[in-house]
Design a protein around this nucleic acid. Structure first.
Length: 159
DNA sequence: GCCAACGTTGGC
DNA sequence: GCCAACGTTGGC
């Protein structure tokens, strides 16, 4: 099965690339996703070994902060069952899970944020979901061509 | 802080 | 099933 590529959004005020680096085993549960389209990707499509762009949203500037890798495929999001979690969903239960999480492991941090403005002006990334106006999807597929282009940006501009 | 775009809810 | 109202996301 071919490796897939993704972009995961996080507000760095709540969880940043530095937080991932400092996590036990440099691994975290990517939980708290409460959007059905994003949930479907986590549940059905994200697989172990997939590469992920770690994107800082609502930030100055917003953009790609680093990369990580999927080390556990979709499983029922424990935070949905935990009354103490801010992501708790009343009436949810583990027999009938609605929300899913995956685990990701840190791979690398860029020397600085690769800003959305640069993605926006890079040929080949016109159709990347994150560059589309109004796109709020927090778990996004990235095409192999888009991944390659982003990697070239990172190398060329020494991010 | 502003506000446009979006997803969800709920009345009908 | 429609759609207005609402709450949230997220760039700027």
């Amino acid at each position: 099965m071919a490796k897939r590529y993704w972009l995961f959004k996080s507000e760095p005020d709540s969880f940043s690339i530095d937080d991932l680096m400092k996590s036990p085993g440099q691994t975290t549960s990517w939980d708290g996703v409460r959007n059905y389209q994003a949930r479907n990707f986590l549940r059905d499509d994200v697989r172990v070994g997939d590469d992920v762009l770690f994107y800082h949203s609502n930030s100055r500037p917003s953009g790609v902060a680093g990369t990580c890798r999927v080390v556990r495929a979709g499983y029922p999001d424990p935070s949905a069952f935990n009354p103490d979690s801010p992501y708790y969903v009343p009436n949810s239960n583990s027999r009938n899970p609605v929300w899913y999480a995956v685990d990701v492991e840190f791979v690398m941090k860029l020397s600085q944020i690769l800003p959305l403005a640069l993605l926006n002006e890079t040929p080949g990334l016109e159709n990347m979901i994150v560059t589309r106006k109004g796109s709020r999807l927090s778990i996004q597929p990235v095409t192999p061509a888009e991944w390659k282009t982003v990697r070239q940006l990172i190398r060329h501009f020494r991010y």
